[in-house]
Amino acid sequence: MAKHVNLIKLSVGTESVADLAAWQKTRQALAADGNPRHVTRMFPKRVDEILDGGSIYWVIKGIIQCRQRILSLDEVDRGDGIRRCAIVLDPELHHTAASPRRPFQGWRYLKPEDTPPDLSTKRANDDALPADLSQALADIGVL
């Protein structure tokens, strides 16, 4: 049994994995180390488990489509007294098997046994299916 835990997060306003990658590249300029960050108001309590091999799984258009390894969780101070967490991510996006998810707010913990498998590198470059077709196929268990 894996000791790590993952996070799952909606990528609001993103149309595809390529959109997410493009957005993160524009944000990378803000980080001294060049790694993308996602800043959230809630700081995870299970830090050690996340940093023991956890990833963030991105829900795009109602479907988990990719993941990124979490490198660190850094406290962010914007001078307003609100404690925030910067989830520091590996820039490499790993495409995953499509897995439908209902909308939710913020992030959630995701157990390793509940995560979709990564796609092979050969399939990661396949053209994306239209969101409605991908959703329908995932609903019946084909994707």
Score class of each variant (00 low, 15 high):
A21M: 14
V17R: 15
A32W: 03
I60A: 11
D48K: 15
K25W: 06
I56E: 00
I56Q: 00
M42P: 01
D77L: 05
A31N: 06
I60N: 09
A86E: 08
V17I: 15
Q24S: 04
A32Y: 05
R41T: 13
V88E: 06
G34I: 13
V17C: 08
I87T: 01
D33K: 03
Q28I: 07
I70M: 03
Q24M: 09
G62Y: 04
I64N: 00
V39C: 09
S72W: 04
F43W: 13
I50M: 06
N35C: 15
G54S: 06
L89K: 02
L89I: 01
F43K: 08
I63G: 10
T26G: 15
A86S: 10
G62T: 03
A18F: 07
K61L: 14
Q65I: 02
R41I: 00
I70V: 12
A29W: 03
Q65C: 03
Q24F: 03
R67M: 13
E49L: 12
R69K: 11
Q24R: 09
R84E: 04
A32F: 07
Q68G: 10
G53C: 14
W58A: 02
K45M: 01
L89T: 01
R27G: 15
C85V: 00
V17Y: 03
Q68R: 10
N35M: 12
A22S: 04
L30P: 10
R41Q: 07
D74T: 13
Q68C: 14
D52C: 11
Q24W: 04
L51M: 14
D74E: 15
D52E: 15
A31Q: 10
W58Y: 09
E49N: 11
A22I: 06
Q65M: 10
A21S: 13
Y57E: 00
Q28L: 13
S72I: 07
R69P: 12
D33C: 05
F43P: 12
W23T: 13
V76K: 10
G34K: 14
I64R: 00
L51Q: 11
N35D: 12
E75R: 02
D80P: 15
E75I: 03
V39Y: 07
E75A: 04
D80A: 14
D80M: 11
A86N: 10
I82N: 08
G81T: 07
N35I: 07
R83I: 06
D19M: 02
I56F: 03
R69F: 04
Y57P: 12
T26V: 13
R78K: 13
R46F: 01
V88A: 12
G53R: 08
W58H: 03
S16F: 06
T26Y: 07
E75T: 12
G62W: 04
N35T: 14
R84L: 11
A31R: 14
Q65Y: 02
A86V: 02
I56H: 00
M42I: 10
V47D: 07
C66A: 03
I87A: 01
T26E: 14
R46D: 05
R41Y: 01
H38P: 07
T26L: 12
I87N: 04
